[in-house]
C-alpha cells in the first residue's frame, strides 16, 4: 500500500475500527455465557444446557422488552435463563441425574420451547418483529480516540456491563469465602463438606447464576444486536461458551479473553466479506474450536478442569 495515499490509509483504519467494533460486539454475549458457564463449572457442574438458557433469555427479552422496554427485557432474560437452569440444577444437583444427558434435554427444551412459543404468540414468523434496542452509549472522551474509540467506547451498555462483570466475578471467586467454597466444591466436594460448606446449595446457586448470565447473553442478542427474535438465534453460542471456558482455563479473565478470540474470528468473517476477499471464512470460525482442543490437550497443571467436574456428588 502506498504510504502517501491518505484515502487508502483511512480505508484501512475504518476497516480496522469496524473489525474491532464487531469483535467486541459479538464477544459480548459470548462473554456473558462463558462467565456463567465458568461459575457453574467451577462448582463442578457442566451445563451443556446453556444453549437452552441463551434461547430462553432471548425469548424472555423479546416478550418483556415489547411491554416494558429495554431494561425489563434484560432483567427478564436473566430470569428466564435462571429459571431453566434452576430446573437443570434440581435434576442434577438435588436428584443426581447425569449432567450431560440432562443438559442435552435442557438445550432441546430451550430451543423447542422458545420456537414453539414464538410461533404461537407471534405468528408463523413472517413479520419481522422488532423490539426496542439498547443503542450505543459513547463514553465521553474515550470514544473520540482514533480507531479504538469507536470500537471499544461506543458500544451498548451491556458491553460495558460484561466488561465490568469480569473483575466482579474475579473478586467473587478469589476474594470471598463464598467464592473459595465454590471452587472447593468443584475440586473436592467431600473436603468442602468436611469444612462445613453446604455443597448442594452452593452448586445449585452456581448453576442458577450461570443460567442467568446465559439468559443475559440471549437478551444481548435480541436487545443489543439483532433487534428482533428468531428461532434458534443462539446459533450454538451456548456450546461456544463451553469451549471458551476451556480455552479460558476456567478463569473469568480467561473467559473474557476467550470470548474476544471467538468474537474476533466472527468479526474476521465480516471483514473478509466487506473487503471482498475470497477467503474461506468458515474455516476461521472453526479455528477457535481447534485452538480450544489444542489448549485442552496441552494444558498442564492449572489448565485442568475442576477435578469434580461432571460428577454427581452434590
Amino acid at each position: 500500500m502506498d504510504p502517501q495515499d491518505p484515502g487508502g490509509r483511512r480505508l484501512m483504519a475504518d476497516a480496522l475500527t469496524g473489525f474491532l467494533e464487531a469483535a467486541v460486539r459479538t464477544a459480548t454475549p459470548l462473554a456473558f455465557a462463558a462467565m456463567g458457564e465458568t461459575i457453574a463449572e467451577r462448582a463442578g457442574v457442566i451445563n451443556v444446557g446453556l444453549e437452552g438458557c441463551v434461547m430462553a433469555g432471548a425469548f424472555g427479552a423479546l416478550v418483556a422488552a415489547g411491554a416494558g422496554g429495554v431494561g425489563a427485557g434484560f432483567a427478564t432474560s436473566a430470569v428466564a435463563g435462571a429459571a431453566l437452569a434452576a430446573l437443570f440444577a434440581l435434576c442434577v444437583v438435588r436428584l443426581g441425574t447425569d449432567q450431560i444427558i440432562t443438559g442435552t434435554a435442557m438445550t432441546l427444551l430451550g430451543l423447542g420451547g422458545t420456537g414453539a412459543l414464538y410461533r404461537t404468540w407471534y405468528g408463523a414468523g413472517g413479520a419481522a418483529l422488532s423490539v426496542p434496542t439498547a443503542g450505543p452509549m459513547a463514553v465521553p472522551g474515550l470514544s473520540k480516540l482514533p480507531v479504538v474509540g469507536p470500537a471499544f467506547f461506543s458500544q451498548p451498555v451491556v458491553t460495558y456491563l460484561a466488561a465490568l462483570l469480569v473483575p466482579v466475578l474475579w473478586w467473587f471467586l478469589y476474594r470471598t469465602h463464598a467464592g473459595l467454597a465454590l471452587r472447593a466444591v468443584g475440586e473436592a466436594p467431600e473436603a468442602a463438606r468436611a469444612a462445613g460448606v453446604a455443597t448442594a446449595r452452593l452448586r445449585t446457586l452456581a448453576v442458577v447464576a450461570g443460567g442467568a448470565l446465559g439468559g443475559l447473553a440471549g437478551g444481548t442478542l435480541v436487545l443489543a444486536q439483532a433487534g428482533t427474535f428468531a428461532e434458534g438465534m443462539s446459533a450454538g453460542r451456548g456450546f461456544v461458551a463451553i469451549a471458551i471456558v476451556v480455552l479460558g482455563r476456567w478463569h473469568p479473565v480467561g473467559a473474557a479473553l476467550g470470548a474476544l478470540v471467538f468474537g474476533a474470528a466472527t468479526a474476521l468473517q465480516f471483514l473478509i466479506q466487506a473487503m471482498g476477499w475470497t477467503l474461506p471464512y468458515q474455516l476461521f470460525l472453526a479455528l477457535p474450536y481447534v485452538l480450544t482442543l489444542g489448549a485442552l490437550a496441552l494444558a498442564r497443571g492449572r489448565g485442568r478442569p475442576p477435578a469434580a467436574l461432571g460428577q454427581a456428588s452434590g
Binding site: 457442566i46 451443556v48 450431560i100 450454538g236 456450546f239 461456544v240 463451553i242 469451549a243 476451556v246 474461506p280 468458515q282 474455516l283 470460525l285 472453526a286 474450536y289 481447534v290 480450544t292 482442543l293 485442552l296 490437550a297 496441552l298 478442569p305 467436574l309 461432571g310
Partner: peptide
C-alpha cells in the same frame, strides 16, 4: 484426545460438532 491427554469426551465431542458444522459450511 481422551486416551493421550485425558480430555473429557463431552468437551471434545462438543468442540468437534462445531468444527464439523463450519467445515461443511465451507
Amino acid at each position: 484426545l481422551r486416551a493421550r491427554f485425558g480430555v473429557l469426551d463431552v468437551i471434545s465431542t462438543l468442540m468437534l460438532n462445531s468444527v464439523a458444522q463450519f467445515v461443511v459450511a465451507w
